[in-house]
Lab assay of single mutants.
Amino acid sequence: MMAYMNPGPHYSVNALALSGPSVDLMHQAVPYPSAPRKQRRERTTFTRSQLEELEALFAKTQYPDVYAREEVALKINLPESRVQVWFKNRRAKCRQQRQQQKQQQQPPGGQAKARPAKRKAGTSPRPSTDVCPDPLGISDSYSPPLPGPSGSPTTAVATVSIWSPASESPLPEAQRAGLVASGPSLTSAPYAMTYAPASAFCSSPSAYGSPSSYFSGLDPYLSPMVPQLGGPALSPLSGPSVGPSLAQSPTSLSGQSYGAYSPVDSLEFKDPTGTWKFTYNPMDPLDYKDQSAWKFQIL
């Protein structure tokens, strides 16, 4: 009977010793046993002879290597770790002494450095960015050149030099007046198309007034536009458009034309069986010896 009264063996659950049927240790109110408190290391007290050895090595170098620390530790009968900690504390003490010396050398008012006064946003004049500046400075420094007289040679050079070769001289006033084509001369031969040399188009003023001019072949195509416009036809070669000034309004060009419109200028042929003959000019830059190549039959 006494065997049943004795408590059973101890069981360990999660490293906790349980005594038989008792489960009081598993209750929430019972805390787990805490780790033992780490003991504080005792402070090391250095003797005068030990301090002399350490100070002598510190005077040589503030960062001794492990071999120098072990050698000193053997002399003063201390572990190497204590020597390492002593050098660490000695360097910190040396830095603190240097900072105190710097503070003593500075004057009393030198510690508080005078800061520059901050400028207020409204006091300083700042350039306004509302208006974009002129990058080319046209509004201040540029002045347009004065327009020359209508009959000045410089204007003629600016007008005619675009179309004339570089080897030719500017046309005088008398020749510029001949550039304007007359109405009857352009409409006299509506079906004849003559190819003149390129030099005649640039230099010869008579080429624009003769039936064999460069633009005589364009007349049949330009004249039928007159009834559609409801007024006189516009002429690209009329009046002052080739003269001194090219800047004319469309209203000033509306009254200039080749001449009176005639039914002869239409595109319809009077004789459907007729042929169109292209007159060959020996001055043509295209060297075609066979003139029969310039004739064709309209079917």
Score class of each variant (00 low, 15 high):
249 S>I: 12
253 L>I: 03
218 L>F: 09
67 Y>T: 09
186 L>S: 05
160 V>K: 07
9 P>I: 14
165 P>F: 11
84 Q>R: 07
170 P>F: 15
272 P>I: 10
175 Q>G: 03
271 D>G: 14
92 A>F: 11
70 E>P: 13
23 V>W: 08
118 K>E: 01
160 V>F: 10
208 Y>C: 01
72 V>E: 11
55 E>M: 05
240 P>M: 13
36 P>S: 07
284 D>P: 12
290 D>L: 13
21 P>Q: 02
43 R>I: 14
101 Q>W: 03
27 H>W: 14
72 V>M: 09
56 A>Q: 05
107 P>W: 08
219 D>Q: 13
147 P>S: 03
159 T>P: 01
231 G>S: 03
278 F>V: 04
74 L>W: 08
197 P>D: 04
288 Y>V: 05
100 Q>Y: 07
48 R>Q: 05
279 T>G: 01
17 A>R: 14
233 A>D: 02
106 Q>V: 07
97 Q>D: 10
94 C>G: 06
29 A>C: 10
117 A>V: 09
228 Q>K: 11
39 Q>E: 08
62 Q>T: 10
19 S>Y: 12
115 R>E: 02
194 T>P: 01
154 T>A: 03
214 Y>G: 03
173 E>V: 14
140 D>A: 01
250 P>H: 05
224 P>L: 10
247 A>Q: 07
277 K>R: 10
82 R>F: 15
255 G>D: 02
297 Q>H: 04
244 P>Y: 09
292 S>T: 04
93 K>D: 15
37 R>V: 10
233 A>F: 14
41 R>G: 14
251 T>F: 13
107 P>A: 05
210 S>N: 03
8 G>D: 00
228 Q>W: 14
224 P>S: 13
203 S>F: 15
280 Y>L: 13
76 I>G: 14
5 M>Q: 00
159 T>A: 06
118 K>R: 02
152 S>P: 11
249 S>V: 07
279 T>M: 06
109 G>Q: 09
241 S>T: 08
205 P>C: 14
91 R>H: 15
53 E>D: 05
98 R>I: 03
99 Q>L: 07
98 R>T: 08
122 G>K: 10
32 Y>S: 01
209 G>W: 15
281 N>D: 01
264 V>F: 07
81 S>F: 13
257 S>H: 04
42 E>Y: 08
95 R>V: 14
144 P>A: 05
2 M>D: 00
86 W>E: 15
291 Q>C: 13
131 V>N: 09
173 E>M: 11
286 L>R: 12
282 P>S: 02
289 K>T: 04
138 I>H: 10
188 S>I: 13
191 Y>K: 07
209 G>T: 06
27 H>G: 08
144 P>L: 08
58 F>K: 15
11 Y>A: 02
203 S>Y: 11
163 W>G: 01
196 A>W: 13
18 L>G: 00
210 S>W: 15
63 Y>T: 13
50 Q>R: 14
